[in-house]
């Protein structure tokens, strides 16, 4: 008989599973971040979506294995804490809010084994990450812009880059790209779950 989403707290096995999946996910995020960073357009609008696409597989493995409320909250909160330790302390409360909203979408029985609910929760988390990725760019932008202007950097190039980083329409476009990639990621992840992990009996 399949277990339902339990209200009890995480056991050690659950913690280890979450940590293992998060580490892989975070390493992939770092790799994607450093590969896309030289191309600001891709970094700003695409990196969160690519992370969401690949990370969905690890999230789904953890969600289907642990199947306990609080997993998505812990996932997003720990991501925020790591961002904080890496220098973006102002992002910690932001990620806690994202974590809370994402977790609220998972309310209900057996939701962590429900593909649709996982898709919704994961997509919200990824959109939150996308907006969170843009914040440091704005922050780094100020120092870069100040120095660039003082050094006589081409004003047209600067204004073009600035409008790219501040336009609400482009931000919405980025959120849509992120959501599409996150949804595709959960579809791909669900396929891998059925094909490999459920057959092997390591997830429920």
């Amino acid at each position: 008989m399949g277990k339902t989403t339990e209200k009890q707290s995480f056991g050690i096995r659950d913690i280890m599973t979450i940590a293992a999946m998060m580490v892989i996910c975070f390493i992939i995020t770092m790799i994607i971040g450093s590969v896309t960073l030289p191309f600001p357009v891709v970094y700003l609008y695409g990196s969160a979506g690519i992370d969401g696409f690949i990370g969905a597989i690890f999230y789904l493995v953890a969600a289907n294995r642990v199947n306990k409320h609080g997993l998505l909250f812990a996932w997003a909160a720990i991501y925020g804490l790591i961002q904080g330790v890496m220098g973006y302390m102002f992002l910690i409360p932001y990620f806690l809010v994202v974590a809370l909203i994402a977790e609220l979408t998972m309310i209900g029985k057996d939701t962590y084994r429900n593909p649709v609910r996982n898709r919704i929760g994961w997509t919200i988390n990824c959109i939150g990450n996308f907006v969170g990725c843009a914040v440091p760019l704005w922050w780094a932008w100020d120092s870069y812009q100040e120095m660039a202007v003082n050094s006589g950097f081409d004003a047209d190039t600067l204004s073009m880059q600035f409008s790219m980083a501040t336009s609400p329409a482009l931000m919405i476009l980025g959120a849509v790209i992120t959501a599409v990639l996150a949804i595709l990621g959960t579809l791909f992840g669900q396929r891998l779950l059925r094909k490999h992990f459920q057959k092997a009996g390591i997830v429920g």
């Binding site: 707290s9 995480f10 050690i12 913690i15 280890m16 979450i18 940590a19 293992a20 998060m22 580490v23 975070f26 390493i27 812990a74 909160a77 720990i78 804490l81 790591i82």
Partner: peptide, 14 residues
């Protein structure tokens, strides 16, 4: 404690 444990395991797991 649980969040702390996840962070420590992640640090060791990387």
């Amino acid at each position: 404690a649980r969040i702390m444990l996840v962070l420590i395991v992640m640090l060791r797991f990387a």
